[in-house]
Design a protein around this nucleic acid. Structure first.
Lengths: 261, 261
DNA sequence: CGCGCTGTTGAAACTTGTCAAAGTTTGTGG
DNA sequence: CCACAAACTTTGACAAGTTTCAACAGCGCG
């Protein structure tokens, strides 16, 4: 049977939904602290080499939490930018839209990932972030993040790394979109998921896709029918086993080979 | 006749080539200051709302300059990350490579643009930056950039905006690569160049491409022959006039329409 | 002057998209 | 908890767009 991947598994009720608002500090901060201490992802999202005081400071950054149901937006393109977000549990996608309705999924975010940094540039978000499954999100107001780090250099460096990491990730995505065939794209997608699940302590060889074929296609720049066909082909070639949204990777090496064809 | 676009036009000899090294501050800093004061781009690359002291501080960031000849690399993938760069004059591309030789041009940088931020994440550059024409580059050591801003919040915010801006730019590129037809891509490319030239005080309707058809194709995720064919078609349709690397945009509206087809 | 690099154009091949039909799963309200 | 509708998936046949291969023209430079 398929392993229980993150997302739904880690969702636990948080009762102060949509606690975020423009201002307000004291009580929400307290909640933030307590939340970080028993967060399963402890460390994942934090800068390394932080002093004790710095750690406290970091925890104090998490201003509030938001609980999203599948399909709900965390933010929308054009919305004023106020905070960056850490995925505590769940699975989100970011989407960029063209006026005529065409859309490109630009990212996939799992627990421990930071998102929303595209809003800093113009003080407004440049994409939509949508929950793919019920999700818990830590809200980190940018004002605070920016004010802080006056004396915590590791904190500043951490933020830079996150931003830069997003740039690198997007570069790789551009490489995929610009140079790879449909088969290579799907293989790269599966390998990437595999790696990220493994990094989070889940099985890297057996997991649940959280997206429809259409969403996968949009991420990879191909049509849903093509995604479906390629899944079928990979299964026929005994590289994967796929049943709906459940995938088992039979041959990692095979997929890697397919990529470096 | 075609307007003189940036790049070559602005290149003036700087005699302390490759002045950058791991350490050393005093004298190089002095040079940096004098350089900024008579830089034609003054302001373009600087944060807004900086105090007088902050301005000085910013200028002191430019540690040295580098002069690159066409084709020379500013940095290469895997090289240890030490600095970000500001284009003072010229034109550069960044490229991400696949083992098998395929490559994706991920960005095009003109005077005033910052590049190299992809290196922060892993302390090593994730792409190659290559001069497309002879270019002058301002070197901003990251150590300094990071150390600074303790009391200059606008400075910190500026860096964040630059990083975030790169993320947004790449998102748009992903949209292009994932959803647009070859014709739309070329139109978008021309419109983007037009806009950026105009923003720098050059003609937005008549300029010189600094890249070969192959490089343009690599940026847009299509083959050089396709680029050529589409240029021809746009000319036939009287949307542009093109002669080698010289372009004149006859109908901006026409190109925009083509994109939102 | 000729060689190499760049650009243009044509024809054929190939990949992916489009359209359509049918099966499957999911979600909802009775 | 069932039944039905809506959403999602698979597969085939065909169309369209892009790449590949090839030939040739123009240009700059040694």
């Amino acid at each position: 049977m398929l392993v229980q991947a993150p997302g739904k598994a880690e969702v636990r009720p948080i009762h102060f939904r949509h606690a975020m608002n423009a201002d307000g500090k004291a009580s929400a901060t307290t909640k933030g602290i307590s939340r970080c201490n028993d967060c399963r992802l402890r460390g994942q999202c934090m800068p390394e080499g932080l002093s004790e005081a710095g750690l406290d400071e970091f925890r104090s950054l998490v201003f509030s939490h938001r609980r999203l149901h599948s399909g709900q937006p965390l933010y929308r393109s054009g919305e004023p930018f106020q905070a960056v977000y850490l995925v505590r549990a769940g699975f989100l996608k970011t989407v960029v839209l063209l006026e005529d309705g065409r859309e490109q999924v630009t990212g996939l975010y799992m627990p421990g990932d930071m998102l929303g940094m595209d809003g800093i540039a113009l003080s407004a978000h440049a994409s939509d972030a949508i929950a793919l499954v019920d999700s818990d999100i830590c809200v980190v107001p940018y004002e605070r993040l920016e004010a802080l780090g006056n004396d915590e250099r590791p904190m500043r460096r951490h933020l830079h790394r996150m931003l830069s990491g997003e740039i690198v990730r997007e570069q790789r995505m551009m490489l995929l979109l610009g140079t790879m065939s449909a088969g290579e794209r799907v293989a790269a997608f599966l390998l990437n998921l595999s790696q990220r699940f493994a990094a989070r302590g889940f099985s890297g060889s057996e997991f649940a896709l959280r997206m429809t074929r259409e969403e996968i296609g949009s991420l990879l720049g191909i049509k849903l029918e093509t995604v479906s066909r390629i899944f079928s082909r990979l299964q026929k070639d005994a590289l994967i086993e796929i049943d709906g949204k459940h995938v088992r990777i039979v041959s990692i090496a095979g997929l890697q080979q397919l990529m470096n064809r």
